[in-house]
């Protein structure tokens, strides 16, 4: 990690060198994460990378073995009850109490957090098309998630911690969720969003931290991270190209007659296009790097094995 941001007044979450061990397993091995006030911060990593463990440390559910963790400038273990008044948490796999209705659970979670905004509550129930009178045992995974989301979004907090919050929502409800997070952010509040849904992160997040095996491997804005990625280019030329393979930053070149496809490091894109131009470009498609590719480049080996 090269970032040198010093946690100031506006740093909501500041984690430096966080270590968490479970017996002989090291779950977090010097993890860094900074979330500033008013930003939606994406928290990406494959399963088992330590996202949920980090969140549990932030929530004071686990005690850190090393490193520095502050939440609103306070110690998340020591000041847990105080800090929790200022944040709301939605787990990825929401389990509810089967004999309580959704509405009862929302009210309970609100009460435990120190109060709900009643108007916002009923508005959210409507937007998420949730029937709060049904018992939780009848809810689908998505409906259980809606209950936790409504409870979180209806409480007057400064920070939302969301651990893969939309894994059970259908696309329509995902759009509602996206709108709600946008509105939440527009009020100057902050969100830590751990997610596998890359389109969601691209749509929602101002900055992203990517973690792998308990360490932060990248952190920055999506634009920052795109510098590290490749653009895939596919071109049909008027004559068979030659010498493309020797260009800096070009990978996975495949030439078939007058068709050439390759990937190029985004910083070398201009050079590659100039080279293509010499052979007369008939058609050209280029795909901007998606977060998915960025992800695959970091974890490609793990995904393959």
């Amino acid at each position: 990690m090269k970032r040198s941001t010093v946690g100031g007044m506006d740093t909501v979450i500041d984690i430096a060198g966080l270590v968490k061990r479970f017996g002989h397993t090291t779950a977090l091995d010097g993890l860094d994460l900074q979330v500033e006030r008013g930003e939606v911060h994406g928290f990406l990593g494959p399963n088992g990378a330590g996202k949920s463990t980090t969140i549990r440390v932030l929530l004071g559910l686990l005690r850190a073995d090393g490193g520095n963790v502050t939440l609103f400038g306070q110690d998340p273990w020591h000041d847990a009850a105080d800090l929790h008044r200022r944040l709301a948490y939605v787990p990825g796999d929401v389990n509810l109490w089967p004999n309580l209705s959704g509405g009862e659970v929302i009210d309970l979670l609100g009460r435990l957090r120190g109060g709900l905004d009643e108007k916002r509550r009923s508005l959210l129930v409507e937007r998420f098309e949730l029937d709060p009178t049904k018992k939780a045992r009848t809810y689908s995974k998505g409906n259980r998630q809606k209950v936790a989301l409504v409870a979180a979004l209806a409480s007057d907090v400064e920070l939302l911690i969301l651990d893969e919050p939309t894994s059970g929502l259908d696309p329509l409800m995902e759009a509602v969720f996206t709108d709600c997070v946008d509105e939440f952010k527009d009020e100057g509040r902050s969100v830590l969003l751990s997610s596998h849904i890359l389109a969601e992160v691209e749509r929602l997040c101002d900055r992203v931290s990517i973690i792998r095996a308990g360490r932060t491997v990248e952190s920055g804005t999506l634009a920052d991270l795109r510098h590290l990625t490749r653009t895939s280019v596919s071109a049909e030329l008027s004559q068979a190209p030659s010498g493309l393979g020797g260009l800096a930053g070009v990978h996975d070149l495949a030439v078939e007659g007058v068709r050439a496809t390759f990937e190029v490091d985004t910083v070398h894109l201009g050079d590659a296009l100039q080279a293509l131009g010499r052979f007369g470009v008939r058609t050209l498609t280029s795909q901007p790097p998606t977060l998915e590719e960025l992800f695959l480049r970091h974890y490609g080996e793990e995904v393959a094995s």
Binding site: Y89, N95, R113
Partner: peptide, 15 residues
């Protein structure tokens, strides 16, 4: 075991 306690423990209550 059900993970429900996380919802409660993440609220503003003492440990």
């Amino acid at each position: 075991e059900t993970g429900r306690d996380e919802l409660v423990r993440a609220a503003a209550i003492g440990r």
